[in-house]
Design a protein around this nucleic acid. Sequence first.
DNA 1: ACAAAGCGTTGATTTATGTCAATGTCGGCC
DNA 2: GGCCGACATTGACATAAATCAACGCTTTGT
Lengths: 253, 253
Amino acid sequence: MLEGSTIRRPVVISANNPASSRCDDCGARHIGMCDALSDEDLGALSRAAQHLTIAPGKVFIEEGDPATYFYNVTSGMVRVFKALPDGRRHITGFMSTGQFLGLAVSGQCAFSAEAMDEVKLCRFNRTALNQVFADFPALERRLLNIAAHELTIAHEQMLLLARKNAVERVASYLLNLTFKLESCPGGKLPATAVTLKLPISRADLADYLGLTIETVSRSFAQLKRNGLIEFSNAHAVTLLNPQKLEVVANAKG
Amino acid sequence: MLEGSTIRRPVVISANNPASSRCDDCGARHIGMCDALSDEDLGALSRAAQHLTIAPGKVFIEEGDPATYFYNVTSGMVRVFKALPDGRRHITGFMSTGQFLGLAVSGQCAFSAEAMDEVKLCRFNRTALNQVFADFPALERRLLNIAAHELTIAHEQMLLLARKNAVERVASYLLNLTFKLESCPGGKLPATAVTLKLPISRADLADYLGLTIETVSRSFAQLKRNGLIEFSNAHAVTLLNPQKLEVVANAKG
DNA sequence: ACAAAGCGTTGATTTATGTCAATGTCGGCC
DNA sequence: GGCCGACATTGACATAAATCAACGCTTTGT
């Protein structure tokens, strides 16, 4: 199990930190993909995996590359995006610890991925993974569930991009953050104020919501004016009334 | 195998047509999901399935419903959409023969689905399907591939909705149609003119592309003015130069 | 043959968001 | 501690697309 240290790609900037080169004490051990496995199974999985560290800002998956690997993020945060030749960009999502990378793929990578800070990854060869699937059907089942869940999120995001205005988009983002952080039981929003740390810049948020930086900023300003949110600094918002915010986000007026 | 005729939901408007109540001569037998199965396996699958006919215009999956079933479209065309309370709508996709419906689901349906014409469906109980998966792992593998493919398409559509202008969106749609119809080998576009039948109304196209009917119409007009397309009637376009159209669609100028 | 309805196109105007530009705020570093 | 650079906000203006409205083309039914 103490292995996966063969470094092949220029992207990798450091050899494995021994502490993170074993699956059983991985930061993502009990979240995401690997939680579907027993400890013994995990050992076998580990043999198919390599553990990498990526430097901040490095694009380690390039749209159009041959899709050789699956990845599991074990620490740090990743920006997943697609771009047009003239530079317009859309961020399809942000992946952090425990999240799985490389589903939307068939031969060629359909997206690029960039480390937002120092990122640690667990990398699986796609062909090797097929063997792993045969041995551990639970893993495949889990992956299907993850894919279905991602598809749900994608559809929700398409509705947002196609039909919501700027303020609704920003409000929706704030609520999704709240859900993710609180994993609100039964989909219920807190009746009382919640304070959130915004984990991304205005630029990333704009590229995620299909807006410009300025429009994101103005939308925050409007929510502020309407008494729905409050900033202590640019990256710390308080949702003063999450339920009212939800009315705005989903046009329940 | 001659079964699945128990009709339970108001949605169903006619009993099975005998010709379509058997999986082995289903219209979708050799496309989509069921192609992953041998003829014998198909018999077992059929036992878990019901065959339904849906009236044109009927919404047979309602967003938020408990997700009891998976569906496979065996004939006709289905509109998959999400809506906001005030009526704004986004069509996430159109499903026709052989296509699978019900992936983006976890407990609750994440979308609604509406028959665009008379639609025939093959319906599987989700719990029963888990048993089927256990018996036929090939099916689960296939479903994972389908999910990955749908995710790729969803990401592409998000880029379109977030960052492309009206003309680019319409051009992209025309090219996707061409790909689907021609299943262009190796992703190569024809160098010569192609004529397409547009299978959906301007209204549906607008809801799919995140535009209004008028903007769709004006975008067609502009592509016409630029000598890229030609109409014989509102539902028959000729792409005069597919490769130039691709330059427009993907901002390769 | 005609009226009526449904769908699509085109034109005039409004509006939300993008663009360009100036100013403000915060954190790191000499 | 103060300066610098990155990031964020705010303002003035431009513009793409939405909205509102009229008109045209097909199809359907009487």
